[in-house]
Simulated scan of single mutants.
Amino acid sequence: MTSIVTLTMNPAIDMATRTDHVVPTDKMRCESPRFDPGGGGINVARTVTVLGGAAMAVFPSGGPSGVLLEQLVRDAGVPTHPVAVAEPTRESLSVTDIGSGQQFRFVFPGPRLTAPEKHRCLAAVDRTVRGGRYLVASGSLPPGLPVDFYQELADLVGGLGVRLVLDASGSALRHIRTGVHVLKPSVRELAECVGHPLPGRAEQAAAARQLVTSGVSEIVVLSLGAEGALAVTRDMQEWFDAIHVPVRSGIGAGDAMVAGLTVGLDRGLALADAVRLGIAAASAALVTPGTRPGRPERIAELYRSISPNAEPSGIWP
Rank of each mutant, 00 (worst) to 15 (best):
D75K: 09
A76R: 00
G77T: 08
V78R: 00
T80I: 15
T80H: 03
H81R: 15
H81M: 15
P82N: 01
P82M: 05
V83Y: 04
V83W: 05
V85M: 07
V85L: 02
A86V: 14
A86M: 05
A86H: 08
E87H: 12
P88Q: 03
R90H: 09
E91D: 09
E91R: 05
S92C: 15
L93C: 05
S94N: 00
S94C: 01
S94W: 02
S94G: 01
V95R: 01
V95Y: 06
V95F: 06
V95S: 03
T96S: 11
I98K: 08
I98T: 13
G101S: 02
G101Y: 07
Q102W: 10
Q102N: 11
Q102Y: 11
Q102S: 06
Q103G: 05
F104H: 15
F104E: 09
F104A: 06
F104R: 02
F104K: 03
R105M: 01
F106K: 00
V107N: 04
V107Y: 04
V107A: 05
F108S: 12
F108L: 14
G110C: 03
P111S: 02
R112W: 02
R112E: 15
R112L: 13
R112C: 13
R112Q: 15
R112P: 00
L113D: 09
L113E: 10
T114G: 11
A115H: 11
A115G: 07
P116Y: 06
P116L: 06
P116I: 08
E117L: 06
E117G: 07
E117M: 08
K118N: 09
K118I: 13
H119R: 14
H119C: 07
